[in-house]
Design a protein around this nucleic acid. Structure first.
Length: 350
DNA sequence: AAGCCGGGGTT
DNA sequence: AACCCAGGCTT
């Protein structure tokens, strides 16, 4: 039996989460921004960053006209920096075409908007009867239908089930609420572990609950082990409280973001003899700090050593820019913040 | 289809 | 420590 959309909507009207981007507005700019920030990022982490972003870039025209450095600084710490590059490009495309498109297909063609975000913006901002398949909806559909095939292969079957739910009159009358009700059900009741089935408005129609399979669904392909990589970075001070940073290449890992200069990252440990050519000013007396900064990326673990020196006045540097510690703290991704943490804990910041 | 791409909260 | 998160892009 198909679970009744009306039951879920009644539950949603009583128990929905209060979230910043739900404040009555259907401004597609704000909805789009929230959806991009929420890609693989928790609601708790996005809330304050979404508000702060809108203070600095209150509308799509402002964002489109901003320089990359400003967007990068505003995104620093949020991770998945390709999102920020695509966000910037998307804003410029939207302004060029005179506003956001209101169909799923047109949204899908914009930079940084994939199948999920296109459906989410179409449903939430424009009331289109489509269901975005995010982690929540994958979990809810897999459990309601007791679909045991593993992800990502099971995705088409899960999407087909969600589509049938949205075909109900009650859902088509309120697509935006129905979609967000599925999110909230997955986030607060149908949770990854220990789902609160006793509180679920769809319990009586849930095949996963009936069979006892719900907590073990959805099944997923096994993940690969993450290798350990190492690097050596350089903290060059100028004696007046500034430090040297450089900008990473525009694509790839931490693309377009600032960093402390350093060696490449590799699995083979670095020997002392290999390191000097990578220093921003090779002739100096670099002091190696004890300890390492450790950071986990999606597909490898990184251990970074740090060497510190002070540049003589008027030193001739190949690349990079001097920045105050406060400016560096505001603009560096989390990975690099950990190197500054290490330096400060060792009293090496002067 | 598989790999690349951050950071933080939960369990 | 493992898992997960309102995923998208590239190959």
């Amino acid at each position: 039996m198909l679970p009744a959309a009306s039951l879920l909507l009644e539950w949603y009207d009583r128990h929905r989460r209060t979230l910043p981007w739900r404040e009555a507005t259907r401004d597609p700019y704000r909805i789009w921004l929230s959806e991009v920030m929420l890609q693989q990022t928790t609601v708790a982490a996005v809330g304050p960053r979404w508000r702060r972003f809108l203070v600095r870039f209150p509308d799509v025209e402002t964002l489109a006209a901003a320089p990359w450095d400003a967007v990068a600084e505003e995104w620093a710490g949020l991770g998945y920096y390709a999102r920020a590059r695509n966000l910037h490009a998307c804003a410029q495309a939207v302004v060029a075409r005179g506003g956001f498109p209101d169909t799923e297909d047109e949204l899908r063609a914009l930079p940084g908007i994939g199948a999920y975000t296109a459906a989410a913006v179409a449903a939430i901002a424009f009331g289109r009867p489509t269901v975005p398949l995010d982690g929540n909806v994958e979990r809810v559909t897999a459990r309601l239908g007791a679909i045991e095939a593993p992800l990502p292969g099971a995705r088409p079957a899960l999407a087909a089930l969600a589509r049938r739910w949205m075909e109900q009159d009650a859902a088509r009358a309120r697509p935006s609420d129905f979609v967000q009700a599925l999110f909230d059900l997955g986030a607060t009741i149908c949770t990854p572990r220990s789902p609160a089935c006793a509180l679920c408005p769809w319990r009586s129609d849930c095949e996963g609950f009936r069979t006892g399979l719900a907590p073990s669904l959805p099944r997923k392909a096994a993940k690969k082990a993450r290798p350990l990589k190492r690097g050596v970075h350089f903290l060059l001070l100028d004696g007046t409280g500034r430090l040297l940073l450089r900008r990473r290449p525009p694509t790839g890992l931490l693309g377009g973001m600032l960093e402390l200069p350093g060696t490449p990252w590799r699995e083979t440990p670095w020997t002392d003899a290999e390191i000097p050519p990578f220093a921003p000013l090779p002739g100096l007396d670099w002091r190696a700090l004890d300890g390492e900064a450790k950071h986990g990326f999606t597909h490898f673990e990184l251990h970074m050593a740090l060497r510190v020196a002070t540049a003589p006045p008027g030193a001739n540097l190949r690349d990079g820019e001097w920045m105050t510690l406060a400016a560096a703290r505001a603009a560096l991704p989390g990975t690099m913040q950990k190197l500054l943490d290490l330096a400060e804990s060792e009293g090496a910041m002067g």
